[in-house]
Design a protein around this nucleic acid. Structure first.
Lengths: 336, 336
DNA sequence: CTGAAAGCGCTTACAG
DNA sequence: CTGAAAGCGCTTACAG
């Protein structure tokens, strides 16, 4: 069908082994190098990565398993990771498990049979299926992103979730807010737990009494943020500041604020999370915790590739990437 | 390393050929079937799809090439397509070309060397590189999604873009609007052109004079929608209705409307595009043109798989999927 | 229905 | 540095 090493070898007048060595960057006689190069160009030869993989048990593919392909946080990370991986000639086989543990297991099985060389997994709060340990046992590295999976000893890349919360709330406190509400997602998942933890810690450290009404834990979604904001802002004594722990929730909360015709920051201060395109169109611009998705993706890709190459010197690594707080115009300093 | 057909054959006391036949669903003696089944279970055998592909020149992988992994419209389609493909045991190798033609070509080359069996491409207005023809010449089917690429004769899946526009605008006209503005994206790209065309046609058919000020063609983004809305709504005689041709633009326009404290639908009627999560948190709920991303993805996947299987009976197909208009609360019927 | 053998496109000891 | 040969895990005519 297509042109193979055999064709190249014939045209260049060398053996296929020599062509293979050329392809893999071994040194060979200058004359042969030239002839092979010429043959490859003339024939339009492209090496077959699949065949290559069969022999050295490498597929040059990395499985990427995530809960939803439509979650911009996850896909931003994947984009960055893919950029790194492509440079190293790895391709990404992307599987969406639609938030179902069962489907996740299915995908993991599927990727095993595709002989992926490594795996990047976004567990999104799901527990660890046995098949994951089978990956490690088979020498296939697994990097967990944005979750802890305590039962599973492997490389992990997260952000400083609780610390980010702490700093955000601290900033509000230093702006003299005392009635600070948190709009949080599901505390069954790692990020939800951690972000709540940081909020509580900050209040404790600054000796601000905790008002249970101000703690909402719903779903990390537009709707979750919207509903929580509506509830909080229609309390008898509503909070003066909102700390919102996820991009989609921030978005939903903003819609609720608009609808209630509450002006930010005059009547309400807000610190949100992440700043994808939304920040282009929100007035005033939001002060947010920014998760460095590029960095997260980069670290995930680099880590899994390093393991694939056999470097387990620092295994398992637990990378906690630092977030920044972008201080913009949605927090008002209260007069005391 | 892992367990192979050879191991299964040995344990079952048959030849590897027989195991292979079992795996591929050929009929064999009941006794052998049982023994092989037993051996597979006992050994935990998983077939190696890579090796399988080498022999019959199939990788069981479909390349998916898109401008951005963070575009929810594209990823919604990919999600649906992957669901179909996974059922047929195909995996998706996803490549993001970050809106650069050069990178797109790179990715296409890359996927060739990975021996993908087929390709699903979102050109996003980019022109057709030569390498695409090479795909077809090599017998690798290519399905174009959401674009026309007139220079390239292959299967295409789009929606009824201009017709969708026509119906949206017609609806506004029947609600007695005459000052109807369009917030459109780049007319260099297919969808932008088509959606503008439908708008113009509707006005012409109903003999409504075209007001050039009411036609904005910017960028299919939050910001594009936001800025266009600001411009339109601050005109001396602003439109009474807005037709917005993309999800992100709809989003941005809504933010502008909120900021200008214009109430919908009392002061302004709106028909938007698509209804991802945003619709959960917008009040009033928007009347929108809904692109059936599930269907688009399904058709793209089914078409490419059908071609992979050798069925070119209707090649090339140009599927134009029907959109629906979801009539909700953002359009007011004007009194005459 | 089944076994033995050749082969998919490549790599890699093994000799030289 | 290079060629000949074996082999990666599977499939598939070819005989029987």
């Amino acid at each position: 069908m297509s042109v193979t090493v055999r064709d190249v070898a014939k045209r260049a007048g060398v053996s296929v082994g020599t062509v293979s060595r050329y392809l893999n960057g071994y040194s060979l006689r200058e004359e042969n190098r030239q002839r092979i190069k010429e043959a490859i160009d003339a024939l339009g030869f492209k090496e077959n990565i699949i065949a290559k993989g069969l022999k050295n048990n490498r597929s040059m593919a990395i499985g990427v398993v995530l809960a939803s392909l439509t979650d911009i946080f996850a896909t931003s990370i994947v984009t960055a990771a893919e950029r790194i991986a492509a440079k190293e000639n790895f391709s990404f086989i992307v599987c969406d498990y639609e938030g179902s543990l069962e489907k996740m297991v299915q995908k993991l099985d599927f990727l095993r049979s595709r002989s992926v060389d490594g795996l990047i997994l976004f567990p999104s709060g799901h527990s660890c299926p046995k098949v994951l340990q089978a990956y490690l046992d088979a020498g296939i590295p697994v990097v967990i992103v944005n979750d802890d999976m305590p039962a599973f000893r492997t490389d992990k890349v997260t952000v400083d979730n609780s610390n980010a919360s702490f700093r955000a709330v601290e900033w509000l406190i230093h702006s003299n807010h005392r009635d600070i509400a948190i709009i949080n997602g599901d505390t069954e998942v790692y990020t939800g737990r951690e972000r709540l933890k940081g909020y509580l810690e900050a209040l404790q450290v600054y000796e601000i009494p905790i008002n249970k009404q101000f703690i909402t834990c719903g779903h990390f979604s537009h709707k979750g943020g919207y509903e929580a904001a509506k509830t909080l802002l229609t309390l008898e004594t509503p909070p003066t500041a909102l700390y919102i722990t996820n991009y989609y929730m921030t978005f939903g909360a903003i819609m609720a604020v608009n609808e209630l015709k509450i002006s930010v920051p005059q009547q309400l201060s807000i610190i949100g999370f992440d700043h994808f395109e939304i920040s282009d169109v929100i007035n005033p611009s939001l002060t947010v915790i920014e998760q460095p998705t590029d960095k997260i993706g980069e670290m995930a890709a680099k880590t899994v590739i390093r393991r694939i190459r056999g470097d387990y010197s620092d295994f398992p690594v637990d990378l906690s990437i630092k977030t920044r707080m972008l201080v913009r115009d949605s927090v008002r300093r209260l007069e005391l």
